[in-house]
Write a protein that binds this DNA or RNA. Structure first.
Length: 926
RNA sequence: GGGCUCGUAGCUCAGUGGAAGAGUGCCUCCUUCGCGAGGAGGAAGCCACGGGUUCAAAUCCCGUCGAGUCCA
């Protein structure tokens, strides 16, 4: 990146000089003319530990002083409420990873104006990339607050502020806190992230990076003229001040505690230390702890041990217990935000991330022997957070239920896992010593398919009973091995992004006027053809609803007035406000006047199902709880479905309740109001719950409200004007499409009536088959099934009896072949099972048998050989010979075998072939 | 969104193309003053469901339903 980018007036005017770090070689700005390094770890150690940088402040105090500093600075930033930690408005990330993420992609790209400009916010963020190092490094947190002041500038427009004021404000804020300004360095470090990039200054003091000032003005572009890390970038139409100040780091710097955890979670750590029965090593080994903390940013653990003059093992033993407690404190804080903001633990998407964190904590609590239930620790965290985030308290009940449910599930997984491992270990019994080692791929498989971490496998195996001594070697990089295995699977699926040709072509065409919003009940309209692109007609205005938000496109026709020709509209899509009517034929000229007609029945069905969707979500939220979030939806003519986040299966009772409530909302005939509202105002007024069905682009968004705002959603679909118009709503089924996501399928309006009739017919027909009244169907079916089972048993018993009786009969029919008693008979209608019984009994009495059961289209063959002939005649070979003639095949054991064939006319021939073979074999072996 | 595993007696699971099994629990009897324990016998299975391949499927293939788990 061009060094010119960092040629910032403020730095030059305030006595800063640009230097090159002696250690890492990067450039930085400083007031201290003798400074030789950039000041960042690992070039420098944490000199603030035990020696705070400024006056001690709590998290609440730091946050408040930051927000009010920027509210009252010359640029009067607007203070914003925090956004959720679940990035509901993004489809590329699950969790909110930075304050700027709140404004991506629409605000940063310039499509939507910012809610305020400039603005200041303290945004709780979650990053789970470094889960393994949490607790160990002393500075990593999964959940942290990123304080940011943002200014959104547009090229050609009036500039709010850019690099100069950004640095000025940052410098001013640090001075305001009382930081020694000579110790502050601004380090040049190009920033890259999420398809954007730009120059960046890292703000560092005493070894600690407190903030980053990003000047975001580049975007990824294959033809871009600027190259960073091998990727090409180009200048954007916007240029944005994206700053991130680590709230927790400021608190840490103000306290000078050994770790950031000691600064942020002192109370929780105290509780955990007490509960685990250990002592905080800060009390037992203060010198080691302080020294380690100061050096930890700059050195590896081995080096630190060396420097402190103790063994690595010893240092680990001192640190590891408290590191686990730090991690628990961190993770529970993270969970408080995730669960309160509505993440439902599951096995996919953001739910999996929640489960991952939950299970890590369960494991850590167990290893530390801490018996405080996890939910109680999360509640402790909420207790300290509630002053600044009162909304967290609303979710307390659900969190308790959720966490204990997850605990139960985890215990079950482990219990099952223990059985699996024990069984596997038993398989090693009696093997040679060098073979008693679980191979790596087996360990990976156990983790991948059963969720059993190798440490757990090792523990179970080491508790094995005597005689089994299985080795378990866990490679250091086990988890990254698993991860890389999965990323290899994915490589082949990478798709090349298709260049949006249509978008290019429609860019110059004005947005289509959407008559379906203005006249929701109209079916006919007139319009003028503006263009014809790739088989699609573009009009100046239209009634045709384009596919979107889970609602399929309208179909219908366009009639060219002058030519009196009708075109069938088969699909309708919207691209950047321009509506494309895909037609079967071509040959439409610009300027032609058309009259359009939409398929009214289809549209009405879609409309009813769409309104019904909102009603069902609303009812489900009422019945199941506030964590219900729409995870996908599809509307059709006959039925519709919604996927909702929920942590257990919807019971039959809940399903009935949701259905009843939904129909009650219909019967109350509530108003459904749809109107365009300012996006930022709507977000503030209704909250993020409006983004149930995804996030629409644009400055103004369409808001659909039911009744007294019982349900408010951003929605582009067509809707009834009153809930009564929806008609009956019938829930057809619920399905668990994923752990944590339930699908509800339902029909509305006429389609619902038809579904009910269909169901009724099904029941009526079933009842009439059994000749019972409908209400007796369940008991009748049960009785029939029981009787059927009884009869089946009886049948089997009788067959055994017949077989028994036949045995006596067949014995008299035995023929003698060279001294061997052979029973070779054809049994009409007999089945294989019955013949097996007979044959097996006869062979016990020293008869050799060949039985052929002759049925309508198929003959089955059973043969048995008495024990004394075992070495001479093989039953399996005998059956094969017989079945060959019958055009089939067979096989089995040497004593008894079965087979069959389809050439029933050759039964006699087959039997003779069998007897001949027996004759041959006996004579040969005698 | 993608991958892997599983569904067999009330429970825990073997069986991986040739006759549905074990342990445990249950029932009856014997032993015992009684309990624990031991002995003898017995009942209990749409082998999740629906297709296909095969002479033959719990077993192989496809689909559906249900459960578990890992990765992004």
């Amino acid at each position: 990146m061009d060094s010119e980018e960092y040629n910032i007036e403020y730095l030059k005017e305030n006595g800063f000089t640009r230097k090159k770090c002696e250690r890492c070689g990067s450039h930085f700005w400083t007031r201290d003319h003798d400074r030789k390094t950039c000041g960042d770890a690992p070039c420098e150690f944490y000199s603030f530990i035990g020696n705070p940088i400024f006056k001690e402040r709590s998290a609440d105090e730091i946050r408040e002083s930051f927000l009010s500093f920027f509210e009252h600075c010359p640029h009067k930033h607007t203070r914003m409420k925090r956004y959720p930690v679940v990035a509901r408005w993004r489809d590329d990330i699950y969790l909110n990873i930075a304050s700027i993420a709140n404004f991506q992609p629409f605000v940063t790209s310039g499509k939507v104006p910012p809610p305020a400009n400039p603005l200041v916010i303290s945004q709780p963020c979650i990053r789970l990339e470094d889960l393994e190092s949490i607790g160990k490094t002393g500075r990593h947190l999964t959940a942290f607050e990123m304080m940011g002041h943002h200014a959104f500038n547009k090229r050609g427009g009036e500039e709010i502020y850019w690099k100069n004021d950004t640095v000025r404000y940052c410098d001013g804020f640090l001075r305001h806190l009382g930081v020694d300004m000579d110790s502050v360095t601004y380090k040049e470090a190009p920033w890259v992230g999420g398809g954007n990039a730009g120059p960046c200054l890292e703000v560092i003091t005493n070894g600690l990076e407190l903030a980053t000032l990003v000047f975001m003005d580049l975007e990824l572009s294959p033809q871009g003229e600027i190259s960073i890390n091998g990727q090409r970038y180009t200048k954007m139409d916007t240029y944005i001040v994206d700053t991130g100040y680590g709230l927790e780091r400021f608190v840490w710097a103000s306290k000078g505690t050994p770790t950031v955890y000691d600064a942020i979670f002192p109370d929780v750590i105290k509780e955990l230390v007490n509960a685990s029965g250990i002592e905080h090593p800060l009390e037992t080994h203060p010198a080691i702890i302080i020294q380690n903390a100061r050096l930890s940013g700059a050195m590896k653990r081995e080096e630190i041990a060396n420097k402190l003059g103790i063994s690595l093992e010893n240092l680990k033993n001192i640190l590891e217990p408290i590191e686990t407690i730090y991690a628990i404190a961190d993770h529970t804080n993270c969970l408080a935000f995730m669960l309160a903001d509505g993440v439902v633990p599951s096995n996919a998407k953001e739910g999996y991330l929640a489960r991952l964190v939950l299970r890590r904590v369960f494991r850590m609590l167990k290893s530390m022997g801490i018996e405080i239930p996890l939910e109680d620790i999360v509640l402790m965290q909420i207790e300290t957070l509630r002053k600044s985030f009162p909304e967290l308290e609303k979710s307390v009940d659900r969190i308790v239920e959720l966490v204990s449910l997850e605990h139960r599930r985890y215990d079950e997984t482990l219990l099952k896992g223990e059985r699996i491992v024990r069984q596997m270990a038993r398989g090693y019994k009696g093997k040679r010593k060098e073979e008693q080692k679980i191979p790596l791929d087996m360990l990976i498989n156990l983790y991948d398919t059963h969720g059993l971490p190798p440490e757990f496998v090792k523990e179970v195996v080491s508790n094995q009973e005597a005689g089994v001594d299985v080795e378990v070697d866990i490679p250091e990089n086990f988890y990254s091995l698993v991860a890389s295995m999965h990323s290899e699977e994915r490589k082949g699926e990478m798709e090349q992004p298709i260049v949006e040709k249509i978008e290019e072509k429609t860019k110059s065409i004005p947005a289509t006027q959407k008559l379906y919003y203005e006249k929701p009940s109209a079916v006919d309209f007139e319009a003028t053809v503006l263009d014809f692109v790739d088989g699609s007609v573009i009009l100046d205005k239209t009634l045709f609803f384009p596919e979107g938000g889970g609602q399929p496109a309208d179909t219908g026709s366009l009639t060219l007035k002058e030519e009196n020709r009708t075109l069938k509209v088969i699909d309708v899509q919207e691209v950047e406000g321009v509506i494309l009517h895909k037609i079967e034929n071509s040959g439409v000229s610009k300027g032609a006047v058309v009259s359009g007609h939409i398929d009214a029945a289809r549209r009405i069905a879609h409309t009813k199902h769409h309104s019904a969707t909102h009603v069902v979500v609303c009812a489900a939220r009422e019945v199941l709880g506030g964590h219900i979030w729409q995870a996908g939806a599809q509307k059709g003519e006959k039925r519709a479905r919604i996927d909702i986040t929920h942590f257990k299966r919807i019971s039959d009772a809940e399903r009935s309740e949701i259905e009843m409530l939904a129909n009650r909302i219909v019967m109350e005939d509530k108003e459904i109001k749809a109107s365009f509202e300012d996006r930022n105002e709507a977000e503030q007024k209704y909250g993020f719950r409006i983004y149930q069905g995804g996030v629409p682009p644009g400055k103004r968004i369409r808001i659909v409200r039911i009744g007294e705002d019982e349900d408010v959603q951003a929605c582009a679909g067509t809707h009834c004007s009153k809930t009564g118009e929806i008609g009956p709503i019938k829930i057809l089924r619920t399905e668990r499409i994923q752990d944590g996501i339930e699908r509800i399928e339902y029909s509305a309006g006429e389609a619902a009536v038809k579904e009910i009739q269909l169901l009724e017919e099904l029941i009526r027909k079933s009842a009439s088959v059994l000749r019972v009244p409908v209400h007796k169907l369940p008991s009748a079916v049960e009785r029939f099934f029981e009787e059927w089972k009884q009869l089946r048993k009886e049948n089997e018993r009788l067959r055994a009896e017949i077989a028994e009786q036949r045995i006596g009969l067949w014995k008299e029919h035995a023929r003698d072949i060279r001294g061997v008693s052979v029973i070779a008979e054809v049994l009409p209608g007999a089945d294989t099972k019955e013949m097996m019984k007979i044959a097996s009994q006869l062979s016990k009495d020293d008869f050799l048998t060949i039985l052929i059961g002759k049925r309508e289209k198929h003959a089955s063959v059973v043969s048995s050989v008495p024990v004394y002939l075992r070495n001479d005649v093989n039953a399996s070979a005998l059956v094969k010979r017989v079945c060959e003639v019958l055009g089939g095949s067979g096989g089995g054991k040497a004593e008894i075998a079965q087979g069959g064939g389809t050439k029933i006319e050759k039964v006699k021939e087959a039997m003779e072939a069998g007897i001949t073979l027996v004759d041959d074999l006996i004579s040969k072996n005698k």
